[in-house]
């Protein structure tokens, strides 16, 4: 198995507070990895460092063998490092179809064409329809996003990510805020993600993590404190301390 995504010794400090210390992890093609951690563990910072919204003080991010640490967020996306958002970031006045078409057009390098009709590219429209169909969004494809259910908006986030044909996908709490009746649909969508894709899921919901990931890493106070199969997480003393005890607290004071 080839290593597709690699983070080594990633560190970041905000005014003396180390929010990320020496984080290293790697993912192979087709891997399903979950990142968990208590509130304030530095998950958001980690996502921002990986996606290029924040510059690390030290360390490296490698994507398919290439060092992308110096590249900006847009360049990383274009190289196949794609993310979804914890709180949906969609355009309320556009339809799901329009979101996905825009994404497909961007992949084809046609997203900012002036002398073309947005709905006139039949290849893009067909591909968008197909993606929306696989996620069961065909019914609402032509409705404004503001009017569709939150669970459907979460699915649309995944649809957009899929339309980008990523190599590595960061799922930032894909089921956050979704009523529990709708979570099976999200899980179903996650289960059907392309097999070759390396997926890093950041999640609170341990049930979801257990069903989805083969490997789990735990982040606490900016540090990776555990790496292993999901079944071992609950038994690990450091993890127990991080969640139940005062580890995170002590760490932030250091």
């Amino acid at each position: 198995m080839t290593t597709l995504f690699e983070v080594s010794r990633l560190s970041k400090e905000f005014g003396g507070l180390k929010v990320s210390r020496d984080i290293s992890l790697s993912m192979a093609e087709g891997e399903r990895l979950a990142l968990i951690g208590p509130n304030g563990a530095g998950k958001t910072t980690f996502v921002n460092l990986v996606t290029g919204r924040l510059r690390p003080d030290a360390g490296q991010v490698r994507l398919a063998g290439e060092d992308v640490t110096a590249l900006g967020a847009v360049q990383r996306v274009r190289r196949g490092l794609v993310r979804t958002f914890q709180v949906t970031r969609l355009f309320p006045d556009m339809t799901p179809e329009e979101h996905v078409i825009m994404t497909v057009l961007q992949r084809h390098g046609k997203a900012t064409r002036i002398l073309a009709r947005f709905h006139g590219d039949s290849a893009a429209s067909d591909e968008a329809a197909e993606i929306l169909a696989t996620l069961g969004l065909t019914e609402v494809a032509r409705r404004k996003v503001a009017t569709i259910a939150y669970g459907q908006q979460r699915l649309l986030e995944i649809a957009i990510a899929l339309a980008q044909r990523p190599k590595v996908l960061l799922l930032d709490e894909p089921a956050a805020g979704v009523p529990s009746a709708d979570t099976p649909r999200i899980e179903e969508a996650l289960a059907r993600l392309p097999a070759s894709l390396a997926v890093l899921m950041i999640e609170h919901d341990m049930d979801l993590v257990f069903r989805f990931a083969k490997r789990v890493v735990v982040l606490a106070a900016g540090e990776l404190i555990f790496e292993g199969p999901p079944a071992d997480v609950a038994r690990d003393p450091l993890v127990r301390e991080a969640y139940l005890g005062s580890y995170a607290h002590a760490g932030s004071q250091a």
Binding site: T51, A73, V74, V77, R78, V82, R83, F85, R89, L90, F91, P92, D93, M94, E98, M102, T103, L105, Q106, R107, K110, A111, T112, R113, I114, L115, A116, R117, F118, H119, D121, I160, Q164
Partner: peptide, 27 residues
């Protein structure tokens, strides 16, 4: 025609949420 071109849609997107647009890989 321009405001309904792909370019016009991206502009509308930028107005709503520039971060989302950059997450699509668009400058």
């Amino acid at each position: 025609l321009i405001v309904r071109s792909p370019f016009g849609m991206v502009c509308r997107g930028l107005k709503e949420d520039p971060l989302r647009i950059s997450a699509l890989g668009i400058y």
